[in-house]
Nucleic acid binder design. Structure first.
Length: 188
DNA sequence: GTTCCGATTTTCT
DNA sequence: GAAAATCGGAACA
C-alpha cells in the first residue's frame, strides 16, 4: 500500500463537476495503513467515518478536519487490511481559472499545494465520499502518460500528525514547485 | 526572513 | 469534552 502511494505520483486526478472539467497531476501523497499505523484513522478499528478505508480499493475517502478543511484520500487497503493514500498536492492541468476563482489566490503555485487547498480547488466535499475513482465519474484517477521520464521521487516522514512519525511514507516529486512548502517547517 | 497562534466543526472517548 | 492527516494571517527578529 506504501507502494501504491508512490505509484499514484504522476497520475492525474480528474474532477467533473457539472460541465466543468478539472484535472491535476499528483505530485505529493502520503500512505496510511491500519492497525500497524498509529497515525491512521483506521488505527483501532472501523468507525462510521473511516469505513471506506476498509472497503474496496480505489474509492474516495473524504473527511472533514480542523473545523474548516476537507482532505481527499484514495482507499488502498490490500488483503482485507484497511489503508488509504492521502493526496497532498497536485499540479493544476485543467480548469485552472476555476480553481483560481475558488481559491482567491493569484499564483498558480498555491492553488493546490496542500491537502485542504486541493479539495477546495477541486470542489471536493463530503458528498464525494465513497465514490469509485477507478471508473470515470464525478471524481476519478486517470493513468498519466509518463513520457519516459521517471519523476525524481523523495520520501520523508508524514506531515501534520503526532504519531507514527518514524514511518517515511510521504512521497513527492522532488523537482516540482507544486508540492506543499510547509514541509520542512513542519517539525518539532 | 521565520515562528506562533487562532478559526471552527466533525468525530471519537 | 478534547483532539484533529490544516491554513493563513499576525507577530517577532
Amino acid at each position: 500500500m506504501v507502494v501504491v502511494a508512490r505509484d499514484l505520483l504522476g497520475k492525474v486526478l480528474v474532477r467533473a463537476s457539472g460541465r466543468t472539467l478539472l484535472g491535476g497531476r499528483i505530485v505529493e501523497a502520503e500512505a496510511y495503513r491500519g492497525s500497524d499505523d498509529p497515525a491512521s484513522h483506521a488505527y483501532g478499528g472501523m468507525t462510521e467515518r473511516n469505513a471506506v478505508m476498509f472497503g474496496e480499493v480505489g474509492h474516495a475517502y473524504v473527511y472533514f478536519t480542523y473545523g474548516m478543511h476537507y482532505c481527499l484520500n484514495v482507499s488502498a487497503g490490500e488483503g482485507g487490511t484497511p489503508g488509504a493514500v492521502l493526496l497532498r498536492a497536485v499540479e493544476p492541468l485543467m480548469g485552472i481559472s476555476v480553481m483560481r476563482r475558488r481559491r482567491h489566490v493569484i499564483g498558480d503555485l498555491e492553488l493546490t499545494n496542500g491537502p485542504a487547498k486541493l479539495t477546495l480547488a477541486f470542489g471536493i466535499k463530503r458528498s464525494l465520499n465513497g465514490v469509485d475513482m477507478t471508473k470515470p465519474g464525478r471524481l476519478c484517477i486517470a493513468d498519466a502518460e509518463v513520457k519516459g521520464n521517471r519523476p525524481d521521487i523523495e520520501a520523508t516522514a508524514r506531515i501534520g500528525i503526532t504519531r507514527g512519525l518514524d514511518k517515511q511514507w510521504r512521497f513527492f516529486v522532488k523537482n516540482s514547485p507544486y508540492v506543499s512548502k510547509m514541509a520542512k517547517v513542519r517539525k518539532s
